[in-house]
Design a protein around this nucleic acid. Structure first.
Lengths: 225, 225
DNA sequence: CGAATCCGGAGGAACGGCATCCGTTTCGAG
DNA sequence: CTCGAAACGGATGCCGTTCCTCCGGATTCG
C-alpha cells in the first residue's frame, strides 16, 4: 500500500509518455496541414513511431482528434464570451468572427471538425460543469453578439446568427487558396462578407435565414461528403 | 456503294441509340444530384441498362461528363457575352453571376466540373473556331463586365475579376444547404456577397486580389480534394 | 433467317484505410 | 544487475470502393 494503484490514472512509463506527446504533436501538425482525413499511419510515421503505438494510445482517429482539438474548442468558446465584453458591438462581432476564421485558416483540421458535426466523435467542450458541442456552446454568445450589433444599427437588420455560421462555412474555400498562393487571401473575402453584413441602407436579403435546426440538418448532410 | 460507310459516323443501331440517350439523360440527372464522383455503375443502373453498355458507349466517366456538360458550358459562355449587352453595368455583372450560380445550384456536377479544373477531362467549349477551357473563355467577358461596373462607380474600385471566381467558389457550400432545407438559401448569400461588392464608401479590401495564375494554382490544388 | 451488333451484370484487379497481432526492445523495481 | 511487465513497431489481414472487362445470350436489320 506504499503506492495506492489508481485504476483510472496509471503512472505512464517514460517512453510511453514521450510517445504520447509525440503523437499529439504530430497529430496537431498533420491534421492542421492535411485535414481530418489524414491517416493514423501518417500521423504515427510523422511522429516517428509505429502505427501500433498510435493505436495503443488512442483507440482510433476520433479519440486522437478529440484530445487534440478540445483545447481549440475551449479557446474559441472563450473568445466568444470575451468578445461580449467589447464595447463597440460591431467590433465585438468582428473580433470573434475574425479570430475564429484566422484559426481555421491555420488549421484545416479545426475547420473540418467544427464544420462536420459528429463526423469525428462529436466535438465537445467543458462549459462550467456540463459538456456541450462547440456549436451548441457558441449559439448563445453569437446570438447576443448579433443582437447587440443589430440593436446598435451597425449590422443589417435582416442578419441572423446562423449567417455567421454560413460565413464560417463559406470561408472554407479560401484557406487552401491562401496557402497555395502564400498570401492570406482569406482576409479579403472575409472582409467582403463582412462588408455585405454592414448596415448602410441596403436592400433586404432575398431569402429568410436558416434557423438552428436547418443549420444542423445542412451541416449533417455535408459531413457525408 | 449504295451507302458509303463513313468511318467516323456509323449509323447506330436502334437499341444502341436509345441506350445512348438513356445514359446521357441518366448521367445528367445523377451528376446533377450527386456530383461528379457518381459511379458509372450508378448512372447505368439509373438509366436502366447494364454497366457494360455504359462502358461501350463511353470510355469512362470523363467522356460521358464531357458529352453532358459541353452544352452548359456553351450556354454559360453565351450568357457572359449576352450580359455585355445589358445597359446598366451593375445589372450586367449581376445577371451573369446570378444565372451562373443558379445553374450551379441546380447542378452539383456542373459546379464541380467548373470548379475543379482538369479533374474531369479539361472542360472545354467551342468559341468561334477554337476550343477553350470554360474558364479561359470566361476570363475576357468577365473582365470587361467588372471593368465596366467599376468605371460606372457601382462596383467597389478594389474589386477584381478573380473575385467573381472566388465568389463562385465560395457559393459552393450553399447549394447542399439549400437542397436539404428546401429553400434557395443560396440566393441570400449570393446577395450578401454582392452587397459586399457594391460601391458605397467602403474601406478598401485588406489583401490584394488573386491574379489569374494564382487562381489557377488554387483551383488545381483544390481538385486534389 | 442469319450475321453483325449490342446487351447485361457477375466478378476480377487495384487501391487505400483501419486495426490487430506478436516477436522484439525498453523500462524500472528490487 | 536481473528479470518480468510494459511498450514498441510494422508486416499483415480485412474490408469497402471503384473501375472496367468479359462473354453467353438477346436484338436488330438486310
Amino acid at each position: 500500500m506504499t503506492s495506492t494503484p489508481d485504476s483510472t490514472t496509471r503512472p505512464l512509463r517514460r517512453d510511453a509518455a514521450r510517445n504520447r506527446r509525440l503523437l499529439l504533436d504530430a497529430g496537431r501538425e498533420v491534421f492542421a496541414a492535411r485535414g481530418l482525413d489524414a491517416t493514423l499511419d501518417e500521423i504515427a510515421h510523422h511522429a516517428g513511431v509505429g502505427v501500433g503505438t498510435a493505436y495503443r494510445h488512442f483507440a482510433n482517429k476520433q479519440e486522437l482528434a478529440g484530445a487534440i482539438f478540445s483545447d481549440d474548442f475551449a479557446q474559441l468558446v472563450g473568445c466568444a464570451h470575451e468578445a461580449l465584453g467589447i464595447a463597440d458591438p460591431w467590433e465585438a462581432l468582428v473580433t470573434f468572427v475574425e479570430t475564429t476564421v484566422a484559426k481555421h485558416a491555420k488549421d484545416r483540421g479545426l475547420y473540418e471538425i467544427m464544420t462536420a458535426p459528429g463526423a469525428m466523435g462529436e466535438p465537445s467542450v467543458q462549459v462550467g460543469d456540463k459538456v456541450e458541442t462547440v456549436r451548441e456552446a457558441l449559439i448563445e454568445p453569437v446570438t447576443v453578439l448579433v443582437d447587440h450589433a443589430k440593436a446598435s444599427g451597425c449590422l443589417r437588420a435582416d442578419a441572423s446568427p446562423t449567417d455567421v455560421a454560413a460565413i464560417l462555412l463559406m470561408m472554407g474555400h479560401n484557406y487552401v487558396t491562401s496557402e497555395t498562393v502564400g498570401r492570406p487571401v482569406w482576409r479579403r473575402y472575409l472582409w467582403l462578407l463582412l462588408d455585405g453584413l454592414r448596415a448602410t441602407d441596403r436592400p433586404e436579403l432575398p431569402v429568410e435565414a436558416l434557423d438552428i435546426d436547418e443549420l444542423d440538418a445542412a451541416l449533417t448532410v455535408m459531413k457525408k461528403h
